[in-house]
Design a protein around this nucleic acid. Structure first.
Lengths: 229, 229
DNA sequence: CACGAAAGACCGACCGTCGGTCATTTTACA
DNA sequence: TGTAAAATGACCGACGGTCGGTCTTTCGTG
C-alpha cells in the first residue's frame, strides 16, 4: 500500500470519525480494529501509533461527543442576564433543540445504542456526558441556591442525581424503540412522553420547586425525535 | 481426566458459583471461560453443555443475586399490617441490614466491581436488581398513592427513578474506594454518607413527602460498610 | 542553503488468547 | 441393552495487540 502521511491531529480525527460511524452502525464490540483501519486505508501499526488500545477509541469518541454537546449550549450558559431557573430551562431547551435538529441521525444512533448488546457503549456515552455536564449543572444549581429559589443542601449532588435521571430513561426508550413498526408504536411514544414529563416533575421536586417549573419535554418533542428517519 | 457426572442443576450451580467468585475477584472481562472450567475441573464442552455463551454466566449470576436479595426481604414486603411508608422504610432497613451483615464480602466485591474496567459488570448487577426490585417498589408506591400519602402520577415511573438513584451513587462510592488507605479516607466516607442522606431527601421529594421521611442511611451505616474487611 | 540525522508517522506480518464448536466417549436409567 | 443426556478435549477462526523495520518530515549545523 502507498504510504500517506498526514498531520497527527488530522489522522487521529480521521480514525475517530471512522470508528464513531462504525460504532453507531454496528456497536462497539461488533466493530473490529480491522474494520476501522480498512475503512480509511491505514495499517494496524499506524492505528496503534495513535491509539494504545481499542478501548481508547471509546474514551476519545465519547469525550468528543460530550464536548461538542456542551459547546453548542455555551451561549445560554454564559448569558449573565438569566436567573438560575431561566438558565436551567434555557439549557434544557437548547439541548432539546439540538436533538430535534439532527433527529434522524440521533434516531438512527438510538437504534443501535439501545440494543442490549451495546449496553457498554450506551453507558460510556452517558458517563462522558455526565462528566462534562456536571460542573455546568452544578453551577446553575449553585446559582439558584444563592438566589434562594432552589432548596438543595448540595448543588453538586443534586446535579449528579438529575443527570443520572436521564439514564433511568434507558429502559423506557428501549421499549419505545422495540415497539417501532408495530401496532403499539403510537402508544409506546405516548407512554415515553408521559414518562419524560414525570422526570421533569422529579427535577422540580428535587430542586424544591413547584411541579411544572422545569418542563423536560414540550408538546411533540418525543414524537418528533422517535419518529425521525 | 476422570469423568464425573452430576445432576444438571448441581453442575449448573457449581459453574455459577465458581464464575461468580472469579467475577468478583478479577472482573468479568478478565475472567476467561478457561479460568472457570479449570477452577472446578470440567471440560470446555461440559461448560458449553450448560451455558450457551460466557455472556449467559453474567445474566444467570446477576439474576440469581437479585433473586436472593429480594427473597431476603420478602417478610417485610408481605406483612399486611404495614402502611406504605412503613413498608418502604422497612424494605430499605432490611436491605441495609443485609449489607451490614455481610459487609466484609460486600466491601471486597466493591473493590473489584467499582473499578472502571468493570463498568459492565456493575451495570449488569444494577440492571438485574432493578428488574427484580421494580415490581416490588412499584407495589409499595401504588399502595402509598392509594393511601394518599405518596403524591406521584405514575408509581412505576417513580419506582424506576428511585431505583436508578442508587446507580447515581456509583461515582461517589468509587471515589470513596479510591480514597481507601489514604489520608482522605475519613473525609471521603463522611462525604459519601452525606451524599447518601441527600438521596434519601430526593426520594422524599419525588414521593411528595416531607424531607426526612425516608432515611436512606442510619448513623454509622456508611462507615460500617466501607471500612469492613 | 545544503545536508544529514533524529523524530515520528506508518507498514504489515506475526503472535497469543479467547470464545466457541464438534466428533466422540462415558454414564445413568428405563 | 438401547438411548438420551452429560462430559471430553482437540481444534478452529477471529480478534486485539506487538514488533522490527521503512519512509517522510523537520530542524540544527556548517
Amino acid at each position: 500500500m502507498p504510504r500517506i502521511v498526514k498531520r497527527p491531529d488530522d489522522r487521529r480525527n480521521e480514525i475517530l470519525d471512522a470508528a464513531q460511524a462504525l460504532f453507531f452502525e454496528r456497536g462497539y464490540e461488533r466493530t473490529t480494529v480491522n474494520d476501522v483501519i480498512a475503512q480509511i486505508g491505514i495499517s494496524k501499526g499506524g492505528f496503534y501509533h495513535h491509539f494504545s488500545a481499542k478501548e481508547d477509541l471509546l474514551e476519545a469518541i465519547t469525550a468528543r461527543l460530550a464536548q461538542d454537546a456542551v459547546a453548542r449550549v455555551r451561549d445560554v450558559l454564559e448569558d449573565p442576564s438569566l436567573d438560575a431557573l431561566a438558565r436551567l430551562n434555557g439549557f434544557l431547551a437548547s439541548s432539546r433543540q439540538m436533538k430535534v435538529e439532527d433527529a434522524p441521525k440521533l434516531r438512527a444512533a438510538f437504534d443501535v445504542v439501545f440494543r442490549p448488546e451495546n449496553l457498554l457503549l450506551y453507558h460510556r456515552i452517558n458517563a462522558a456526558s455526565i462528566a462534562v455536564m456536571r460542573p455546568v449543572l452544578t453551577g446553575i444549581i449553585a446559582q439558584g441556591k444563592k438566589e434562594g429559589v432552589f432548596a438543595v443542601p448540595d448543588p453538586e449532588a443534586a446535579a449528579e442525581i438529575i443527570l443520572h435521571l436521564g439514564a433511568s430513561t434507558h429502559d423506557a426508550v428501549a421499549r419505545t424503540i422495540a415497539a417501532t413498526g408495530t401496532a403499539g408504536e403510537d402508544a409506546a411514544i405516548d407512554a415515553l412522553d408521559q414518562r419524560l414529563r414525570f422526570y421533569g416533575v422529579a427535577v422540580d421536586r428535587i430542586l424544591g420547586l413547584p411541579d411544572g417549573s422545569v418542563p423536560f419535554v414540550e408538546p411533540g418533542f418525543t414524537r418528533a425525535v422517535m419518529t425521525a428517519r
